[in-house]
Design a protein around this nucleic acid. Structure first.
Lengths: 238, 238
DNA sequence: CGGTATTTTGAGCAGTGTCAAAGACGGTGG
DNA sequence: CCACCGTCTTTGACACTGCTCAAAATACCG
């Protein structure tokens, strides 16, 4: 049996302890896996009764669009992340899901997930915790966009990404490849591609980071955290 | 028996149906109620093991602070709203809770709430849905702050407030009193008090609204919604 | 190797912030 | 009921952050 969902189960388990029976129940869910290219929509804002989506491999992001077509990226999701937790309980999707690079995404029938949650309180508990952490991160994004300037937003983004990736054992904290172009980085931070570029150069000039293309190296993590006003508590990492 | 939590139960019930047994269980929770003055902290960011808080009467808001002391308001909560849903499942509070005007707030022992949720799947379900709607609103705030300009942010805020209040039967949609000063409005929208003032004047000049102090009248709701790029789907009102 | 997307740089401008001061409002104590 | 005080609103002048438009340089992909 190929346990497609095991990165997800691992992550879930780190938020609320699951016993073998719980895990087995998750693994027995019927899933269909599809692969998506960069910048292709996996689910659309407004979708009704969408599948429950789990990112199996690669990167994905969630997005909302403005009436005039501007977009805001809401997350940078990695291996094992659920992509539309709240869609389980809401009649329609308030945001879209977008693949980056070659993302492998598992589709699970939402009704079965809900039955699973009803039958396994510990899984429900873990889902709720996952949703709470996600909400905490979203609130930090509001603080970021509302109160911090461009340089801080960018520094913060880098710190956050590094911290999350390292906590998951996916990359080292001070050297990694970002799955975002500078334009996408702008859509995530509420800045222009041009301004992202300038702020990155400023971080380089200040000796906080180096980068060649999308490969980043953090030279002075303490200073970068200060510049980004980053405290990792809100991530609730282990 | 004085059912202090009944506005909360009503709201909860509108998200996921509760039977009499469920309601009775909630009403039997031990609560202590306290009243808070304007701009006083009810719970602090970082608090551990805080009580579960429900706003019984008046207005409250949630906030996060920047390292340099700037603040971002995250919500405008009214009668019946839970104030720290996610604190139930997280080890510490990622945001603070602040009272506006004379807010009456119920404190409930968190452990008992969790037991309640475990014992009553339908309540758990309703809580999850409530949390999902809150998350949806927070995501819209990110879109707001990241992608819309000052005028739109303000217009959007007014539309949102009007829609929510009307849906709860608390005020009419086109005439209401805001519980925020222009400074607080600025902290909520990521703008300066001064700029809030100017944008409000602009909305007045355009004939979209009128206001005397904090009493607002919406003159052209369609145009205001257009100006604020407001579509109410993300609120998931009934 | 060619074509396309991305990054980098420049110049000018628009939108917001800052600082400051005057006016209006609302609540309080006398 | 009035006078006073603190808070909030309004207005003005100016600075600065971040955006727009445009083009060149570079990197990436087939």
């Amino acid at each position: 049996m190929i346990k497609i969902l095991s990165p997800f189960v691992d992550q879930l388990g780190s938020y609320g302890p699951l016993n073998e029976r719980d895990k087995a129940a998750i693994f027995s869910l019927p899933v269909s896996v599809r692969t998506f290219d960069r910048e292709t929509q996996v689910a659309r804002q407004g979708d009704i009764d969408s599948s429950f989506l789990v990112l199996v491999e690669g990167f994905a992001t969630r997005q909302k669009l403005t009436g005039s077509g501007r977009r805001q990226l809401l997350s940078l999701d990695v291996q094992g992340d659920p992509l539309n937790l709240s869609a389980l309980f809401l009649p329609s999707a308030d945001h879209g899901v977008l693949a980056l690079a070659n993302a492998k995404i598992a589709f699970v029938p939402p009704q079965l997930v809900i039955e699973l949650l009803n039958a396994h309180p510990s899984i429900m508990h873990a889902f709720f915790k996952l949703a709470s952490v996600d909400a905490s991160m979203t609130r930090e994004a509001v603080l970021n966009h509302g109160q911090r300037d461009a340089l801080a937003r960018l520094a913060h983004f880098l710190c956050q990404y590094a911290a999350r990736m390292e906590a998951r054992g996916l990359t080292s904290q001070d050297e990694f490849k970002l799955p975002f172009s500078q334009g996408q980085l702008g859509d995530a931070t509420g800045l222009t591609a041009v301004h992202v570029n300038r702020m990155l150069s400023r971080l380089v000039d200040a000796g906080l980071i180096t980068h060649k293309g999308r490969s980043f190296k953090i030279l002075n993590i303490a200073a970068l955290r200060r510049a980004g006003d980053f405290k990792e508590e809100y991530l609730f990492l282990k």
